[in-house]
């Protein structure tokens, strides 16, 4: 029974890669560094966790080269929870990605939070069965990553700062460029694709759909329920919270509040309720105080 059916089952297709991101929509993906944190995140209602050795704020503070996490850390986190587990590979480091795929992680974040391994080329993500999420600051960057096989996009923001201003900038930019594409006559699409350095076929798809062809989350600097709801109202499909939860004084309470705010992002009275008595948020960083070469969003192209 089923032997011939199994032969017909296809794994790692574009539909299932993109499909998992569709299932994460309206949810919060939280950075965790230990199995205990992963359990707190799951208990608080995270729809997935990002397994890391250090959260972005600590990576920023530590300096030096930031690499893929130790597989032991990732495997322990995978054992601790039933929700999907993501992990980060360096930009262009396709061997780190091969290792993460072999570990069985559910999504790979080719991430500017780590030190890039290649300053010219991103990973050819079509080659993998595991899906990828990539950061983007504008429509052209988002479509280049999708062209390389990313099945999910997130804003870059400025990770590890607890300052939402860059995520807002990137989300507004992508949304306004999408609105612009929708208003272009077809004969202007090729020139627009050339200007934003994006694949023409994907630009056409954006015009037809009125949105990116994959799920688009907000990331990089989200620290409060209000930040999460702000990004959702600006058009994000869901939220990544990096340092914002486990660098705050009461991670469980803050995590639950951000989850509720992401679901009820249009209901100010619920946002007011869940924003009460959360304790100290993570200490924030003013973007202007970060030197240009230390801005993570400048990594990748």
């Amino acid at each position: 029974m089923g032997g011939t059916k199994m032969a017909a089952a296809e794994k790692g297709t574009w539909t299932v890669k993109k499909g998992l991101a569709e299932m994460l929509k309206g949810g919060v993906i939280m950075d965790v560094t230990t199995p205990e944190q992963a359990k707190i995140a799951e208990e608080a209602g995270a729809c997935a966790v990002m397994a890391l050795e250090r959260v972005p704020a600590d990576i920023r503070a530590a300096g030096g080269v930031a690499r893929m996490a130790d597989p032991t850390v990732i495997l322990r986190i995978m054992d601790a929870v039933t929700i999907p587990v993501m992990a980060k590979a360096r930009i262009g480091h396709f061997v780190e990605a091969q290792i993460l795929e072999a570990l069985g992680v559910d999504y790979i974040d080719e991430s500017e939070v780590l030190t890039p391994a290649d300053e010219e080329f991103h990973i050819n993500k079509h080659e993998f069965k595991v899906p990828f999420v990539c950061g983007a600051r504008n429509l052209g960057e988002a479509l280049r990553r999708i062209g390389e096989g990313a099945a999910m996009i997130r804003t870059k923001g400025e990770p590890g700062t607890g300052n939402v201003v860059e995520a807002v900038r990137h989300m507004r930019r992508v949304m306004s460029e999408i609105r612009r594409v929708q208003n272009l006559p077809d004969e202007e699409l090729m020139t627009f694709a050339k200007e934003i350095q994006a694949p023409y076929e994907l630009v056409k798809q954006v015009k037809e759909l009125g949105r990116l062809p994959v799920v688009n989350f907000a990331a990089g600097g989200i620290a409060t329920p209000a930040d999460a709801a702000l990004m959702m109202q600006l058009g994000a499909d869901g939220i990544f919270v990096g340092s914002g939860i486990f660098k705050s004084s009461d991670p469980m309470k803050r995590a639950r509040a951000i989850v509720a705010a992401t679901t009820h992002f249009r209901e100010p009275e619920i946002l007011a309720e869940v924003s009460k008595d959360l304790g100290e948020a993570m200490p924030g960083l003013e973007i202007a105080t970060i030197r240009q070469e230390e801005r993570m969003q400048e990594r990748g192209w």
Binding site: K5, A9, K11, L20, P84, Y107, V130
Partner: peptide
């Protein structure tokens, strides 16, 4: 059926 890498489509 396992983790994401085992997600599949079938008739």
């Amino acid at each position: 059926y396992g983790r994401q890498v085992d997600s599949f489509e079938v008739d």
